[in-house]
Amino acid sequence: MELQVNGHKTFVYTGGKPFDAAKPSVVFIHGVLNDHSVWILQSRWFAHHGWNVLAIDLPGHCRSEGPPPASVEDAADFVLALLDAAGIEKAALIGHSFGSLIALEAAARAPQRVSHLALVGTAYPMVVSPALLQSSLEAPEKAIAMVNTFSHSLLAPPPSSLGPGTWLYGGSRALMRRVLASNPQVNVFHTGFKACNDYANGEAAIAAVQCPVLFLLGEADQMTPPRAAQALAKKAPQAQVVTVKAGHALMSEAPDAVLFALRDFVIGTR
């Protein structure tokens, strides 16, 4: 489905079901150099179990137009504008990595519009090493290889994710290359990493959140290790912390565990 958000075409995946703003809604927000497809299992499950799903491509990424957000704050404003464009008064926000910071900031800016907040593979501060930040600008292929090495603890997925013979590491690299190539005007790799690294409003944002919060973390995550979310989790209202056996690529390495944690959180706390 396509929506006009801030004057630009925005692509949202609805999980294979027609959009219906009258249903309870959930928004899935991807991380750096990803798109809506990283949520394929989770978004389809919610769509086929009575939920209105919006799994987005962020602006300037793949099928969405407009300038890519240069900051977490800009991206949060986009998410709230997306809710307006879709006619959704209130939604659950689920974000991975960069997307988790975007969801957090959006929930802080408009707490009355967010029913649940799920922070997947999150950390605060979300520090990006100077070497990786520089490589994302000057040698993106090298940086993509580095990120995938740090993001994966498995090489092949369990049966419920994708299909037999799928190579997680190679598939993720291919996706990141495709997302990078989708915007020849702006390096969305460096832009996204810099936005993560620069974000300094996490503690103030979590204090403003008024809904239940889930921290869904990978125990083998080297990009955003679980310990890097502890300080934020202690400050979160109504916080739950769930750790699964996975690296940073939680949705593909532990698809069922991620789905069940999100299901139990969003549906169990309605």
Rank of each mutant, 00 (worst) to 15 (best):
G171I: 06
A21P: 13
L132T: 15
A118P: 01
K23C: 09
L154R: 12
P255R: 03
V266T: 13
D256V: 10
E105Q: 13
L180S: 06
I29K: 01
I94W: 00
S64H: 04
Q112R: 15
E105G: 03
D198M: 11
F46C: 10
F19E: 01
P225V: 04
P140M: 02
R113A: 04
V147S: 00
N187G: 10
A239I: 13
I88C: 04
R63A: 14
L155V: 12
G163W: 14
M146T: 15
H49M: 14
E138Y: 08
S252R: 04
I29W: 02
T269V: 14
G247W: 02
P59E: 00
V244R: 02
V5S: 05
L117S: 07
M251C: 02
H190T: 05
F11D: 01
A75E: 03
R63C: 08
W51V: 06
A85F: 02
S129D: 14
D57Q: 12
Y13I: 15
V242F: 10
K235L: 14
L83V: 12
A21L: 08
I56F: 03
L259S: 09
T122L: 00
A108R: 06
P130S: 09
T149L: 07
V213C: 05
V26T: 06
S160L: 14
S115G: 15
P24T: 12
I267E: 06
L154I: 14
R270A: 15
A204P: 02
H152D: 14
G99D: 02
A110N: 03
G165T: 10
H96E: 13
L117R: 03
S64G: 09
K194M: 11
R263N: 08
R178K: 11
T14L: 11
R173S: 09
Q240A: 05
H96F: 09
K90F: 07
N52D: 14
S97C: 11
V12C: 11
P111S: 11
L41E: 14
G7Q: 10
P18I: 08
L3T: 08
Q42L: 06
N201G: 15
V120S: 06
D74E: 12
P125D: 07
E253T: 01
L80C: 08
A204E: 10
S252Q: 15
H190C: 07
Q238P: 05
A246C: 13
V12L: 12
L119P: 02
A205V: 02
R63H: 14
L137R: 12
M251F: 00
W167F: 12
A143M: 12
H248N: 04
E73N: 12
R263D: 05
S161A: 15
E89F: 11
P18V: 05
N201F: 04
D35Y: 01
P184Q: 13
N148R: 06
A254E: 04
L80E: 07
A239F: 04
F78V: 09
W51I: 08
V258L: 05
V53Q: 01
Q230V: 06
F19K: 11
D256C: 08
H48I: 04
P140Q: 09
G202N: 01
A236V: 00
V128R: 01
D84A: 10
P68W: 02
M251V: 03
L162K: 10
Q230W: 04
P159D: 14
E219N: 10
D256I: 09
G95Y: 05
Y124R: 04
G165P: 03
T10K: 08
L180T: 09
P125M: 01
K245V: 11
V242T: 02
H61V: 12
